[in-house]
Amino acid sequence: MDSKRLEITETALKLFAQYGIKSVSMDDIARELGMSKKTLYQFISDKNDLVEATINLACSQDCEAMAIFKRKDINAIEQFFEMKTLVEQFIGQYKPTMMYDLKKYYPALLSDFKNKQKDVHIEAYTSNLTQGQKEGFYHDDIDISVIARMLFAHGAYTFDDTNGLFTASELNNMNLYSEVFKYHFRGVCTEKGMEEVERLFCEDDEGNK
């Protein structure tokens, strides 16, 4: 992607995430970038083009984040804590308005994004579960194919801020993420795995003091 188009797309994604798609105009985006709307249209055809570009960027960012679960320089449980650290950097930045707007005005784009997200997440979780079994952290008798899909479904519903399961305040609190992690670990971890979980939570607590 052209560097200027990428800059525009990144700015638009930030504004859409904070204020929703419909309430952010092309004038707003041009103003945020400090450029004229005429210059903006040299890189973007129209708002529909920009919305599609932001969804593709979000998909790319999601792929990069989930690559944490394929890292071999850290163990399978450390991968979850790396993801937790990443989530902490962005928690509270995204509002449900963008998702509402996507569902209402861009359903095809949203459906495509969710399908890609499902494939990426299940593949990443499969890698994590396979590695964890080899390291002796996860039980040998778990069905990796089933658990990977359950992890995706659990995350997709639990952290969907449009379904009303948790309040915005709860979704913006890292305690919820910690509880979800604990719930998962208690289901798949061996005694050795739980010892590693406790070690990492202790380190996490010490680091937050």
Results as ranks from 00 to 15, higher is better:
Ile144Met: 01
Asn163Pro: 11
Lys134Cys: 04
His154Leu: 06
Lys134Gly: 04
Leu171Cys: 02
Asn175Glu: 10
Thr126Tyr: 05
Ser145Asp: 11
Asn128Met: 14
Val146Tyr: 14
Thr158His: 08
Ile144Cys: 03
Leu129Glu: 02
Ala148His: 05
Ser178Arg: 14
Thr158Arg: 13
Asp143Cys: 09
Tyr177Lys: 07
Asp140Lys: 15
Asp141Cys: 04
Ala168Thr: 05
Ile144Ser: 07
Gly155Tyr: 07
Leu151Phe: 11
Gln133Val: 13
Thr126Val: 07
Ser178Asp: 14
Phe137Lys: 02
Gly155Ser: 14
Gly164Cys: 08
Tyr177Arg: 14
Val146Lys: 14
Thr130Gln: 13
Asn163Arg: 13
Phe152Cys: 09
Thr167Cys: 01
Val146Thr: 14
Tyr125Thr: 02
Ile144Glu: 03
Tyr157Ala: 15
Ser169Ile: 07
Asn163Cys: 14
Gly155Thr: 04
Gln131Asp: 03
Asn128Cys: 15
Tyr125Asp: 00
Thr126Glu: 11
Asp140Cys: 01
Asp141Arg: 03
Asn163Ile: 15
Lys134Pro: 02
Asp143Trp: 04
Ser178Cys: 05
Ser178Glu: 15
Gly155Pro: 03
Ser127Met: 09
Phe166Leu: 11
Asp160Asn: 15
Tyr138Val: 01
Gln133Ser: 03
Asn128Gln: 15
Asp161Leu: 04
Gln133Thr: 12
His139Val: 05
Gly164Ala: 12
Ser145Asn: 11
Asn163Phe: 02
Met150His: 12
His139Ile: 05
Asn128Phe: 00
Phe166Val: 04
His139Thr: 04
Met150Phe: 11
Leu171Lys: 04
Gly164His: 05
Ala124Pro: 02
Lys134Asn: 11
Asp143Lys: 09
Tyr177Pro: 00
Tyr177Ala: 04
Gln133Lys: 15
Ser127Arg: 02
Asn175Trp: 00
Gly132Ala: 10
Lys134Thr: 13
His139Lys: 15
Asp161Gln: 06
Ala156Met: 13
Ala156Leu: 09
Gly155Ile: 06
Ser169Pro: 00
Tyr125Met: 13
Thr167Ser: 15
Val146Phe: 08
Tyr125Asn: 08
Ala148Arg: 07
Phe166Thr: 01
Ser127Ala: 15
Gln133Leu: 05
Ala156Lys: 12
Gln133Gly: 00
Leu176Lys: 07
Tyr138Thr: 04
Ile142Cys: 07
Gln131Cys: 04
Asn173Trp: 04
Leu165Lys: 12
Gly136Ile: 06
His154Arg: 14
Ala148Cys: 07
His154Lys: 14
Phe152Asn: 10
Asn172Lys: 02
Ile142Asn: 00
Met150Arg: 11
Ser178Asn: 09
Tyr125His: 10
Ile142Lys: 02
Gly132Glu: 10
Phe159Ser: 06
Gly132Cys: 03
Glu170Asp: 06
Asn173Gly: 02
Gln133Phe: 09
Asn163Met: 03
Gly164Val: 06
Asp140Glu: 13
Asn128Lys: 09
Leu165Ser: 06
Asp161Trp: 13
Gly155Arg: 08
Asp143Thr: 10
Ala156Val: 11
Tyr157Gln: 13
Asn175His: 06
Arg149Phe: 03
Glu135His: 01
Gly136Glu: 08
Phe166Ser: 01
Tyr125Gln: 10
Ser178Tyr: 07
Asp141Ile: 03
Val146Ile: 08
Leu176Arg: 05
Tyr157Met: 15
Leu129Asp: 01
Ala153Val: 09
Thr158Tyr: 10
Gly136Ala: 11
Glu170Gln: 14
Glu135Trp: 05
Tyr157Glu: 06
